[in-house]
């Protein structure tokens, strides 16, 4: 669709611009302000220039070491999450029943974990995975596997990953299902006449049609796993030790736990910039895909 040039459209956008600027720009300026100052309490602040940033980006310093550890941990977590949830989500979407009352039932049950408050998700898994009163922990322990998510780093990671898969795979599945629904039946009939294998149907019909929604799914899942806070915080509190201290948990520890405002602010800004950069790449890819599609349709 061709759009007309009309700068008066700004009036329609103005309210959104104002309210989001109020919620985003003002607080962000506070963060910038903190990031270049040091405080010894009593609301007295001293100019510190780029000191915090230098310390943060230098892995040999205590703050820098801590930052890079948390960063790699978070990136590793996001990578594992994407590697599991995207294929699993596609598989589940392909397994959706075609019609009948089971469709609505599956949709409702699948969407359920998405609407549970995040700390309740943490609580559910905290209880579910406990060795003494939780079904999962009890069963795993009785299978002869020594499993304790509060004591063992690997167990803690496994629990958090299973929890996230439980929580968010449905989002990927629902997105893919929406993509699959948009494929006309004629495509499948044509494939059948050609004697296409199941794999060929998937590769040449279903996957291309899902490309756009998959991009949204990857974007959303990457962003949300990269800034995950509440669920692991409730489940493990970042422990054992620092094994599951992701960036945002570390940030909240710095800001609200130790009240190291300068350090926390510098970390916030770098964290935000990383996300901004990745977001920009995704956005560019997405707009290009859109443009391609429009060119094909035109």
């Amino acid at each position: 669709m061709t759009k007309t040039l009309n700068n008066k459209a700004w009036f329609l956008v103005l309210p959104v611009f104002a309210i989001v600027a109020f919620s985003a720009v003002l607080p962000l300026m506070t963060v910038v302000n903190y990031s270049v100052q040091d405080t010894f309490g009593n609301n007295q602040f001293f100019w510190n220039g780029i000191g915090w940033f230098q310390e943060l980006l230098d892995p040999s310093k205590e703050l820098g070491g801590r930052f890079f550890e948390a960063l790699w941990r978070t990136l590793l977590f996001s990578a594992i999450i994407l590697a599991i949830e995207i294929p699993l989500g596609i598989l589940v979407a392909l397994s959706m029943p075609r019609e009948g009352w089971t469709v609505a039932l599956c949709l409702v049950l699948m969407a359920l974990p998405l609407l549970i408050p995040w700390n309740v998700v943490g609580t559910i898994w905290q209880v579910f995975a406990r060795g003494d009163i939780g079904l999962l922990g009890w069963v795993v322990n009785h299978l002869g596997i020594d499993y304790n998510y509060t004591g063992d780093a690997l167990d803690a990671w496994a629990t958090i990953i299973v929890m996230d898969v439980w929580h968010w795979t449905s989002l990927v599945a629902l997105l893919c299902y929406a993509g699959l629904k948009s494929i006309p039946d004629a495509y499948y009939q044509a494939a059948r006449i050609d004697g296409a294998s199941r794999w060929a149907v998937f590769r040449t019909i279903q996957l291309p049609k899902m490309r756009r929604v998959l991009l949204i799914a990857v974007l959303l899942r990457f962003m949300d796993s990269f800034m995950i806070y509440t669920e692991p915080f409730v489940l493990t509190g970042g422990g054992p030790g620092n094994a599951t201290t992701f960036l945002s948990i570390d940030l909240v520890k710095l800001a609200l736990g130790q009240f190291d405002l300068g350090k926390a602010a510098a970390l916030s800004l770098v964290y935000n910039l990383i996300i901004l950069a990745i977001c920009w790449v995704f956005y560019t890819v997405m707009t290009n895909v859109d443009a391609d599609r429009e060119r094909v349709e035109a």
Partner: peptide, 11 residues
């Protein structure tokens, strides 16, 4: 996409 953790204190 901004992490809420960043905004907790300024808010």
């Amino acid at each position: 996409m901004a992490p809420p953790a960043v905004f907790a204190l300024p808010f």
